[in-house]
């Protein structure tokens, strides 16, 4: 098991696997995402209470979901960085932090635009919205800290510690709507229960969540490959690869 673990830590091995996975991830991800969004936008029935404004859910929920998942993945990678000093783990963090920040921004932005017609306000300092804003700042912190320290190993460790300290925010985001009074409603999608919407609404939502996940997988692979090319410049296989790309 440990040999497989260490093999997975090899940038060269990852570069190859990622290259083989990426076309599938991109095709499937975009396909599901487009299907889910078109279905949600044009074919799903409107909501009895909110009318058509609820259609924002088909991008709001996937963005918010991914924003939190990406952070959790980064936290796992941070543990691997600190304990096993694996290059690939830090590479992952560096590659996906900006993606996570954009997804968090999208969740906040679509939430604000949705809040205006339904709640009557763009923003309110309730526990859910505030903790989500903190998540955005944690992403910014990871990006800025990573680029501020020039020594690769020191920067990887500093970022990993920051991410791990911030990981307490994730359960706070998730349970904020249950622990405290908030304007934000509780989750519609739960892992353990039936969703509180009919299938003609939750199926397109599920499709867009899955699609965005796969699309993120593609982008993460692509960006990690780029980071590998940059950092492993001195290795022979990267030299050969660069030379081959140039011709």
């Amino acid at each position: 098991m440990w040999t497989l673990f260490h093999k997975f830590g090899s940038p060269k091995w990852f570069f190859g696997i990622a290259g083989r996975l990426m076309p599938w991830l991109l095709a499937l991800g975009l396909g599901l995402l487009v299907a889910g969004l078109v279905w949600g936008l044009a074919f799903a029935p409107k909501d009895y209470l909110q009318g058509n404004s609820y259609r924002i859910i088909f991008i709001h929920v996937p963005s918010a979901f991914l924003a939190q998942s990406v952070y959790l993945m980064m936290a796992v990678a941070a543990v691997v960085t600190l304990v096993w000093r694996m290059k690939l783990a830090d590479l992952f963090v560096q590659a996906v932090a900006p993606v996570g920040a954009v997804l968090t921004f999208l969740a906040l932005f679509t939430g604000a635009v949705w809040g205006k017609p339904t709640w009557g306000t763009w923003w309110i300092w309730d526990a859910r919205l505030t903790s989500m804003l903190i998540l955005l700042f944690l992403y910014f912190g990871a990006i800025v800290l990573g680029s501020a320290i020039s020594d690769e190993k020191a920067s990887a460790r500093a970022v990993a510690v920051l991410i791990l300290v911030g990981v307490v925010n994730i359960p706070i985001i998730k349970y904020s709507v249950e622990w405290w009074n908030t304007l934000h409603q509780p989750a519609t999608f739960k892992l353990t229960e039936k969703p509180s919407m009919p299938p003609e609404m939750w199926v397109p939502l599920l499709l867009s969540v899955l699609g965005l996940y796969l699309w993120f997988g593609w982008l993460a692979c692509y960006r990690m490959q780029t980071e590998i090319l940059r950092r492993e410049r001195r290795t022979r296989w990267v030299r050969e690869l660069v030379r081959a790309e140039g011709h």
Binding site: K46, D47, T118, W119, G120, I124, Q185, S196, M197, M201
Partner: peptide, 18 residues
Amino acid sequence: EQVLAKHDENYMPPEVSD
């Protein structure tokens, strides 16, 4: 001074609600 609407996590088509 201000009244905000709070909705729940349940969504359904108007026909179902009717």
